[in-house]
Computed example of a mutant assay.
Amino acid sequence: MMTEPLFDSAEFRQVCGHFPTGVTAVTAVATDGAVAALTVNSFTSVSLTPPKVLFCVATSSSSFRVLMESQRIAIHILSQEQEDVARRFATSGLTGPEKLGGVAWVPGPDGVPLLPATPAVLAGRRDEVITSGDHVIVLLDIDHVHLKPSRVPALSFYRGRFVAPNADIAE
């Protein structure tokens, strides 16, 4: 039995924001051809053999339905120079096709949108989906990777804002 926390969700978010995270762009294509595009910072590798990763998404996300109907999903690790993509994909009220408008992409395996300008891409098939609170944890079996070596650091998020790794992030 869970007891009621002694803090509110804003304070919880602020505390969690003290942990810097990478920023990824997730794209997906459903069996009916619908596409999703969203920004995610809850991403991690899970297993090397077999290759698996996970990301988390809110059940209230405008991309949630398409993600749950998608078998093919791609995760793009964004560079520091791609904050505009992160902001565009994080815009609520836009559909997947609208978010992809103006962003260079190519169709990947099974038509999943791939962003070739990103330094690294992992694509695969949806495996398990685990519901936890107001989010789901989506596990992917990775069957496609692309690495475009870059000297530009990955985009990071810290205390509610995009930052460059190793930058002076003190206030």
Rank of each mutant, 00 (worst) to 15 (best):
S63I: 00
V35I: 12
T31M: 01
F43Y: 14
T44G: 10
V29L: 08
D32P: 06
F64Q: 02
A36M: 11
V35K: 14
A34V: 01
A28I: 06
R65H: 01
L38N: 06
K52F: 14
T31Y: 13
S45H: 09
V53G: 08
V57M: 01
F43K: 05
L38E: 02
T44A: 09
S47D: 05
S61I: 01
R65I: 02
T59K: 15
V46I: 12
V46H: 05
S61L: 00
T31G: 04
T49M: 10
S60W: 05
S60P: 08
D32G: 05
A28E: 12
S63G: 02
S63Y: 05
S45L: 01
L54R: 13
T49C: 08
S63F: 00
T59V: 13
T59Q: 15
S62C: 12
F64V: 00
P51H: 07
A58Y: 05
V29E: 14
S47N: 09
K52C: 14
A58F: 01
G33S: 03
P51Y: 13
S62W: 12
T44E: 12
V53L: 15
A28Q: 11
F55E: 06
S61F: 00
D32W: 09
L38W: 01
A37I: 03
V46P: 07
A34T: 06
V57Q: 00
R65A: 09
F43P: 10
P50E: 06
V29W: 13
V29A: 08
A28V: 04
V35A: 11
L48Y: 11
V40M: 10
S60D: 10
A30Y: 10
A30F: 10
V40Q: 13
K52L: 13
P50S: 06
S42R: 07
A34S: 09
A37E: 10
S47M: 03
A36Q: 08
S45V: 02
A28R: 03
V35W: 09
V46E: 09
A30T: 07
P51W: 11
S45W: 01
A28L: 01
T31D: 12
N41C: 06
S61T: 05
S60M: 11
A37D: 08
T49W: 12
S61R: 00
A37M: 01
